[in-house]
């Protein structure tokens, strides 16, 4: 016989909180790519995926069922309920930061590529060891 509580929690998670599952999954995939990939560009892709997962998490926390956009017109009396604007601002900022990072990373990779002619970390390591 199955213990009902974990089952219930599991079902709840799948039906109502699937965004969190997705977040964890994306995070794990991103981290895996960072660690496992020996291609520098793929590593950066992994990093982006990792960050995107976090953005997703923030956005999903802002959601309120039936909520309106958090823009309050002048003539409004009361707006109940509406989604939280803060996570959206945060994610916008974080995306900007992430893009800047990606740009710097790619600039570095371009320089490494022009020196070694490869993007494979293992190959670069071998070349450097030979030098």
């Amino acid at each position: 016989m199955i213990d009902p509580l974990p089952l219930q929690v599991g079902i709840e998670l799948l039906t109502h909180r699937y965004a969190y599952l997705l977040f964890a999954l994306l995070l794990a995939i991103g981290l895996y790519i960072i660690i496992a990939s020996s291609n520098l560009v793929k590593m950066i892709i992994g990093l982006n995926l990792f960050q995107t997962a976090i953005f997703l998490f923030f956005i999903s926390t802002a959601y309120v069922t039936g909520g309106a956009t958090p823009v309050i017109p002048k003539e409004a009396k009361a707006y109940d309920p509406f989604v939280s604007p803060l996570p959206q601002v945060i994610v916008l900022t974080a995306i900007v930061v992430g893009i800047a990072l990606t740009a710097v990373a790619l600039a570095l990779i371009v320089r490494i590529y022009s020196a070694y002619g490869t993007l494979e970390e293992d190959t670069i390591r071998e070349v450097r060891a030979d030098e």
Partner: peptide, 13 residues
């Protein structure tokens, strides 16, 4: 550049 990239990946993570 390689050191900076390593730093970037770990730092960003």
């Amino acid at each position: 550049a390689i050191a900076a990239l390593k730093y970037l990946v770990i730092g960003t993570a």
